[in-house]
């Protein structure tokens, strides 16, 4: 963990001006009050391109306090370009403490993963969302998708799953797998693998979702029922990996395939780098 330091005095705390942060907080409060509902907000231009997490960054900026400890992951990893840049961005503009340890963080901004270690009460998980509308690929009209949400007409969502089974024999959607939140709104959990879907259910942490280009914020409050959609005869299942992590030996985690050489050598390792390191360290300590 890197300790808090002096923020760059050229910026307002956490980059955004206070008026903007209040506006975003109001959107967040509404999103928390209506779990799974997409709240429009006046997304700002950020000093990074769309698709690099402008939505998540704005949500993080709006909720960050001086005492917070920030962790940023991209595909589970703390050390990819995107994660490093966003962490550096807030270290500079807010001067907050940053960490790679899931357990130590109070705010975790993520792209495409939920950490393996169970989250605890008081933590906030901020998702970067490219396309917030789960019905978008089947229904291009925004007016119509809003109606569908308003009236809870979600037959169309099952059409997508039907198409999967018809084409592949099983539900082949492996990420951005649609969920029903608190028995009401159907929500896109962002492009996280469906492996992570069960972690969203009854989670003690607050989950916030920010889509910068699409100007939407939505939320799953702590301990909310999150159910993955499925068919009676094709129930929701998470993918299983044939072998454990090549580095730490974990068998119940999400693995990334890593190419080792040009000869086709490869290994499967934990996508959550912090989790993997933690396990290896614990194994070393025990020895």
């Amino acid at each position: 963990m890197t300790a808090p330091r002096q923020a760059d005095p050229g910026y307002n705390f956490a980059y955004l001006d206070e008026g903007t942060k209040r506006m975003i907080r109001r959107a967040i409060l509404k999103a928390v009050a209506i779990p799974g509902y997409q709240v429009p907000f006046a997304s700002r231009e950020m000093p990074m391109p769309y698709g690099w997490g402008t939505g998540g960054v704005q949500v993080t900026a709006a909720i960050l306090g001086r005492a917070d400890v920030l962790k940023v992951i991209d595909q589970g990893s703390d050390d990819t370009t995107n994660a490093v840049s966003i962490r550096a961005f807030f270290a500079r503009t807010a001067g907050v403490a940053v960490t790679t340890r899931t357990a130590d963080a109070t705010v975790i901004q993520t792209r495409h993963r939920i950490p393996e270690a169970p989250l605890h009460a008081g933590q906030v998980l901020v998702y970067q969302v490219p396309i917030p509308e789960p019905l978008r690929f089947l229904e291009p009209r925004e007016t119509e998708t809003r109606q569908l949400h308003a009236l809870a007409e979600y037959g169309l969502m099952h059409v997508k799953l039907y198409e999967d089974i018809a084409r592949h024999g099983h539900i082949a959607t492996t990420y951005a797998y649609p969920v029903e939140v608190a028995g009401r709104y159907v929500m896109d959990p962002s492009p996280t693998p469906k492996f992570d879907n069960p972690k969203m259910d009854d989670c003690p942490a607050l989950q916030l979702f920010g889509a910068g280009r699409e100007k939407r914020i939505y939320a799953v409050p702590p301990h909310t029922r999150v159910r993955s959609l499925d068919f009676e005869d094709h129930p929701f299942r998470v993918q299983r990996f044939a072998r454990p992590c090549a580095l730490c030996g974990a068998g119940d985690v999400y693995l990334d395939e890593v190419l080792l050489d040009d000869a086709g050598g490869r290994m499967f390792v934990c996508s959550d780098t912090d989790h993997c390191e933690g396990r290896r360290q614990a194994a070393g300590d025990a020895r």
Partner: peptide, 18 residues
């Protein structure tokens, strides 16, 4: 697909058995 087109109304009224 044709099957999805025909099935949509069924799923719309709550059928959940593929």
């Amino acid at each position: 697909s044709a099957g999805g087109n025909v099935g949509e109304r069924l799923m719309g009224k709550g059928d959940r058995h593929y």
